[in-house]
């Protein structure tokens, strides 16, 4: 049989024996050194690594800021954001704002185009479920209209109604409701 010959550069029999012995000892010195050092591991469920501020985890939405403009959904490369709301004049009645974490790859591209800076990636990362359907999360903290929005909306409606009753009345009542909530 033709066997491959993989001989090292021969440096003499004694030297080879010595090198084998010595380099093993040197390696064992290093492993021994770490044997007496404190382990680096973190016992996960009890201890946690600090999570930096820029961590890209599960999204959170500042819902009162959101203007339902679809910029984030358009920026998403995997189309995982979908939202639904009904516009009542200037106010929004939220139905849903879901992120499909089956698809999301946490690239944070959705947060940059947001004109109101209202969608962020947070520090939560544990996405553990028994069912894939549970990974479609709704980011809304309330459904329908918020209390303030409802108030403003009703005020505007009332103003509109009174305005309709007395067409010559000035629009003074509606002015505060029209003022943009966010600067």
């Amino acid at each position: 049989m033709v066997a491959p010959t993989h001989t090292l550069k021969s440096s003499g029999w004694f030297n080879e024996v010595w090198l084998g012995f010595w380099t093993a000892l040197v390696g064992m010195r290093i492993t021994l050194k770490y044997f007496f050092k404190k382990p680096e591991t973190v016992q996960y469920p009890e201890e946690r690594m600090p999570i930096p501020d820029r961590y890209r985890g599960i999204h959170y939405l500042e819902q009162e800021k959101c203007i339902y403009c679809f910029m984030c959904a358009r920026a998403c490369p995997v189309d995982c954001i979908s939202m639904e709301a009904v516009r009542h004049g200037k106010e929004l009645e939220w139905v849903s704002f879901t992120v499909d974490y089956n698809r999301c790859m946490f690239c944070e591209l959705c947060t940059y185009p947001c004109p109101k800076d209202c969608i962020h990636e947070g520090k939560e990362f544990a996405l553990v479920t028994y069912d894939r359907r549970d990974l479609v999360l709704d980011l809304l903290s309330w459904k329908g209209m918020s209390a303030e929005a409802k108030q403003r909306f009703e005020a505007a409606e009332a103003a509109k109604a009174s305005g309709a009753a007395a067409k010559d009345a000035p629009k003074a009542g509606a002015a505060p409701a029209d003022a943009p909530e966010h600067s």
């Binding site: 084998g20 380099t23 093993a24 390696g27 290093i30």
Partner: peptide, 9 residues
């Protein structure tokens, strides 16, 4: 290097 690169084996 001490642990691996120069190790005889």
């Amino acid at each position: 290097n001490d642990l691996l690169s120069e190790n005889s084996i």
